[in-house]
Design a binder for these strands. Structure first.
Lengths: 210, 210
DNA sequence: GATTGTTTCCATCAATTGATGGAAATGTAC
DNA sequence: GTACATTTCCATCAATTGATGGAAACAATC
């Protein structure tokens, strides 16, 4: 069976695909409650009922968006893991930070939406499963911070969370931080990478390695 | 002239004060658009029009909340600075992390609201000034990462942002992260402090000091 | 206890929002 | 071209939301 989401991803130029893409952007900027279905429809240039025809109720579309960015992120993490596999930790982190920040700076909705879900409540709390623990464990394994994906200590999970969240923070906070720092986009991206490496590499390249 | 906000803070048991306190909580949980004036009124146990009588329109109340938490944070930072002044950097960071996390874990709305403003847009963008740059410079000075408060490099500002945001992340994300880590509240708080110190102290106690 | 000012609530508004029915438009198969 | 299915839009609904006018309740002053 083909879900609407798979359909939309297979053909991004279809109406379903265009709506999904617009919904990612708008939900990412304004959050669930800050977004109206009319805003998304206007973004696509269609009538609101066309949107409902393709995606059903607002919550379902939001759910599809969350699934979409989750899969996107998972895919990228797997790609990174392939590249860095076997290299020494410092190099691994260096490359991973570069690849992840580049990817996310081109898709800031991902960071936005993830942070929205971490830090805000939705009035009609529908429990979209985020698969966060799974992600975090994979990264911990990839960083060689644990031996077994099924058995990651809380401390290690939190180290990984700190890294991922820091990345998301700088991506998602660009609109706020960059004017404040008076940097051009390129400079900002560069400085973000520098900062992340400056902070995270020393902590993990000490005696803490397995 | 006494502003409504000053009045509300001077007497937290007054209606103005009770509404402000409730507004902090609810706005903190659901964000600006996720919060309705009725939700706040219900939280206080009053009619919606009583709320409007005291605070005027929703945006004004939100503005007061933002000012309130900003002042709160500024005050705490000053207090911390007094305690850590003159001590060596490692100790300074150790104490600062302890004090700030303790303070914020008791007032998670602060972290919530700050992150909301960093990462989300509000439909009717009213530019509440956040005084963020000022804060960040003060912290940079307190950490001895710069000589002059008026002349802090973008790189240093970003280091400070990374620290503050990491703290806010763990406070604000407690509802999401703690169940995932299967920790009691006390354990979680302890592990947050450990994690923050583990990550940030090594980066700054190297050769990077002034 | 009557007068006056303050605070609270009830009733209600207009605008917005999520959502739908049904007609028109568009495409597809024969 | 006709029959049929799919897609799009217009008109509209009910519920929610921000906001207000005005009456009641309460408090203070004399």
């Amino acid at each position: 069976m083909v879900t609407p989401l798979e359909k939309a991803r297979k053909d991004p130029d279809s109406m379903k695909g265009k709506i999904l893409k617009a919904a990612r952007r708008v939900f990412g900027e304004y959050g669930f409650h800050g977004t109206t279905t009319r805003m998304i429809a206007r973004e696509v240039g269609i009538d609101i009922s066309t949107l409902y025809y393709h995606w059903g109720e607002k919550g379902d579309l939001y759910g599809a968006v969350i699934l979409d960015i989750t899969d996107d992120l998972r895919g990228k993490l797997e790609e990174v893991e392939k590249v860095i596999h076997g290299k020494p930790l410092g190099t691994r982190m260096d490359i991973a930070i570069d690849m992840m920040t580049d990817h996310l700076f081109e898709r800031p909705e991902i960071s936005n939406l993830i942070l929205f879900r971490y830090f805000g409540k939705t009035r009609n709390q529908t429990g979209f499963d985020f698969h966060v623990p799974e992600f975090i464990s994979d990264i911990a394994l990839s960083m060689n911070l644990c031996r077994d994906k099924e058995d990651v200590s809380a401390g290690v999970m939190m180290h990984v969370l700190a890294i991922m969240n820091s990345i998301h923070n700088f991506i998602s906070g660009e609109n706020f931080f960059r004017p404040m720092l008076a940097l051009e986009r390129d400079e900002y991206i560069l400085k973000v990478k520098e900062t992340l490496k400056f902070i995270f590499i020393p902590a993990f390249s000490g005696s803490h390695q397995l």
